[in-house]
Design a protein around this nucleic acid. Structure first.
Lengths: 120, 120
DNA sequence: GTATTTGCAAACGTTTTGCGGCTAC
DNA sequence: GTAGCCGCAAAACGTTTGCAAATAC
């Protein structure tokens, strides 16, 4: 992967964002720096950055794909009203950290990742 | 919401499925019972069933929306290789239940739901 | 010099919508 | 009878892809 102004800008924007933006949101933000960048370039770079492990995709119930530039360990809080995903960073007590941020937890869901029976 | 043959079939198919199908997968399955059903009707009914709380959307990193017809409390296991989502039902020990099903857990992620500061 | 990247535009796949006819109540 | 539902087809939307010009090394 060669260095490019456009890809650097996409990665920088994503790392500075804490709202898990979609491709078109990233496009609008990168455009402020590089006005003539195209949406196709943003999509292509997001794909490459994902393949190389610099960014990840956030699981969502949206039809659009949401991206995550912060790879440090943290927790997601989904608001049932505005559907925004808030990042929560804490080393120890999760419920305390959430309450301290003014987040009113109603439920929690744990998803497990690994290899299934037939893929092992 | 009035009763309809098409909506009943969509709900029945989804309740019988354990693979969190997409709209087009549901369409194909309902077609076996109602060959002339249209894809638009499937989408419209999925939207209504979701609004009324009969079904939910599974969060995924796919571009297609995945639906869930089983509202009883259970856990999701995502295979990193084949990307299938396995339902795990257990009352007590989660790790034991996963191992018993031949699922090799590598990591887990907990997501919290509720109301954020500004929506409260 | 050449392999990669870009902008542009067309293509593609998924989901939504408008319409006239049909159905449940 | 009428409000809600249907099938059909077109539109809308998000994403991917092909191409010739530009760029990194």
């Amino acid at each position: 992967m060669r260095s490019s102004k456009q890809r650097d800008a996409v990665l920088q924007v994503l790392r500075e964002s804490c709202d898990h933006p979609t491709a078109d949101m990233i496009f609008e933000r990168v455009r402020e720096q590089i006005p003539n960048i195209s949406l196709g370039t943003v999509y292509r770079n997001l794909g490459q950055l994902k393949d190389e492990g610099f960014i990840t995709i956030v699981e969502s119930s949206d039809t659009k794909v949401h991206y995550e530039g912060n790879l440090t360990d943290h927790i997601h809080f989904l608001c049932k009203s505005c559907h925004n995903i808030t990042d929560v960073f804490c080393e120890t007590q999760v419920p305390t950290a959430l309450t301290d941020m003014g987040l009113q937890v109603e439920s929690a869901k744990t998803v497990y990742y690994g290899l299934c029976n037939s893929c092992r």
